[in-house]
Design a protein around this nucleic acid. Structure first.
Lengths: 212, 212
DNA sequence: GAATAAATACCTAAAATCTGGTAGGCTGCA
DNA sequence: TGCAGCCTACCAGATTTTAGGTATTTATTC
């Protein structure tokens, strides 16, 4: 008997998973949580589960962060991430945070069951559709696979403010920097991704899941 | 007996809706389609349904367009739009295209049933959560309600290319225009939305659902 | 037929961005 | 201890964008 915990804020998804699994008698949905808080309460109460289906878009906490917290609490439970969109960045980060696999929410029933079984066997399950898209994304960006540019903390911070529509001067004011410095970071980011304006930069980093 | 057609490319959603409605004996799910093409086949085959639950994000066709087509075919069937995100623009467009209401996919079972009943009674059902967000969005943008700027065909075309990261000159080349003309359109759009750079413009139009 | 909206195009000046440099200080790690 | 990476800061020139105009042509609508 494999015990499951579903963490997803959409009742529709919870009901859908229940239906998909109802004929598999060895799979039992032990509990379902609609928020990160609820999920942590369940886990802290000592309810034992074997596998957690974790939605990455939760209302009260970043799913990546929750994955990390759960992994810190419990080294053996299997975590299977669920996402609507497949973004290279999100998924690689998810695995880094200790997840055992991910699924896209447009999965078929068979894929869900395969993923659960594979993860329980100790291997990592990566949704096929998502994998294909990741490779295609990297190629379309003209970036070498396994060599996605890494942004520094400061760069990400500036990127975030750029995405909100601030100018270099405004960002400089906000971060107590010289606008020269902000420009340098912007220049470096454009270079890293081989693009020539802010709009293109945004498209690339969104595709890669570097910012929301 | 109310007959339903579900159009959604996520098996999870279809199963979830089935579960939510399984205790309502007067509601019967007549058919489910995963693509616009499948849905049109079903409708053209003459299968009679009373209400259609229509996902706006389909793989093969824009949900708004499909809504329009269905409404052209059949003036009496009730159409209830389903979306993950609530964007003012999408939703107002949806109603314009002849939908009888919309629901967010994070709905509870009760809301789904209320929506179906209300739509069958002939009134338009607007998800409460979405409504609140729309009002809040319009306010946060400093725009008068009921007076969202309207973009012309050309402006939208240029907006699309801007979102892809093209410069004025590149857009001019692509559309066989003078770059002066492109600049004029850009200027007019910035003015319409009361923003001062392209990045902010993108944020506003995305919030309003004017472009994807 | 007049009025209105849309699309086109041009001009200029100011502001911002992009590109290619250089360089000092700090931190963590090997 | 030394080196690499990051953050900071500055300069200058080229390019692009923003903002203020004006103006003609082409539908569309009343």
């Amino acid at each position: 008997m494999i015990k499951l915990l579903i963490i997803d804020d959409h009742p529709l998804v919870i009901d859908g998973i229940k239906t998909m699994l109802k004929d598999e008698s060895y799979l039992h949905i032990e509990a379902a949580a609609k928020t990160a808080k609820e999920a942590l309460n369940i886990l802290e109460a000592g309810i034992a589960v074997d596998i957690i289906l974790l939605d990455i878009n939760l209302p009260d906490m970043d799913g990546l962060r929750l994955c990390e917290i759960i992994r810190d609490m419990n080294k053996t439970v299997k975590i299977l991430g669920l996402t609507y969109v497949n973004e290279a960045g999100i998924i690689t980060q998810l695995i880094k945070k200790g997840a055992n696999g991910y699924l896209l929410k447009n999965m078929e029933r068979e894929e869900l069951i395969t993923a659960i079984n594979q993860v329980m066997d100790g291997t990592i399950y990566l949704s096929k559709a998502a994998n294909e898209k990741i490779i295609q994304q990297l190629q379309s960006l003209g970036l070498p696979q396994n060599n996605v540019p890494v942004l520094t903390r400061r760069e990400k911070e500036i990127l975030q403010l750029l995405s909100e529509g601030l100018t270099s001067q405004e960002i400089a004011g906000r971060l107590f920097l010289s606008s020269y410095t902000v420009d340098t970071h912007r220049k470096n980011m454009l270079q890293k991704f081989n693009v020539h304006n802010t709009q293109s930069l945004m498209n690339v980093v969104r595709e890669l899941g570097i910012i929301a």
